[in-house]
């Protein structure tokens, strides 16, 4: 935290790596109880949104790519101990690949904002979620050979994902307030 203006490439590298690990730990760690619900919900897919809205577009997307790369080479890092290249060959794989675009879109919106508060974060994370669906639904459509049916089937994820967007935004807002130089860093630096 000593040089907020011009972070070294090593700092970039470290944040990317550590956030990839963060997404992994969200999956390894048992679910979280939200509100009064008694069933733990899987929180790993909030990871890419947090990566984008906290690290910014470039590093956020890079950390998601790194995480997915580790999954692809065979490490069981997805929630429920899943992993391996098979994770990219099932009908829902598009939503996994879409995480990269999620982080990118969320990060871009946050870095454009003059002041990073809850409204901006809600917008960024909602847009990130939509970006994920933009990849996930056509992928499912190709898989089952019917795009409208794919869109219809994806509706069941919307309520849970909406909760995660709100949770990720609340969390990112507190983190941005706790570490104000986070939002000063991305996009503004040169070289």
């Amino acid at each position: 935290m000593s040089e907020p203006r011009s972070p070294l490439p090593a700092v970039d590298l470290a944040r990317t790596v550590v956030f990839a690990a963060f997404i992994a730990v969200l999956g390894i760690f048992p679910g979280i109880y939200v509100g009064g619900s008694s069933v733990p919900i899987v929180i790993q897919n909030a990871g890419p949104l947090l990566a984008g809205s906290i690290l910014g577009a470039r590093r956020g997307a890079a950390s998601v790519v790194l995480f997915l790369g580790l999954v692809a080479i065979g490490l069981p890092l997805l929630s429920g101990g899943r992993g391996g290249i098979a994770s990219f060959s099932v009908p829902s794989s598009g939503f996994l690949i879409g995480w990269v675009l999620s982080a990118l879109v969320a990060g871009l919106i946050v870095s454009r904002a003059r002041r990073v508060g809850l409204p901006v974060l809600l917008l960024a994370n909602a847009a990130g979620l939509v970006a994920d669906y933009l990849i996930g639904i056509p992928f499912l459509g190709v898989y089952i050979g019917d795009l409208p049916a794919a869109a219809l089937q994806s509706l069941i994820f919307v309520p849970g994902d909406a909760v995660k967007v709100v949770a990720a935004s609340l969390i990112a807002a507190v983190v941005h307030r706790a570490l104000p130089d986070l939002s000063a860093r991305p996009a503004t630096r040169t070289g």
């Binding site: 700092v11 550590v18 956030f19 979280i32 906290i54 969390i171 983190v175």
Partner: peptide
Amino acid sequence: SVIAFAVPFLIRTLRHADELGEALA
């Protein structure tokens, strides 16, 4: 509470990243 878990976890995660960054540098 999700916040009571996620916020300290994230802040310590970022702190760990800074330590790792310094070590790499």
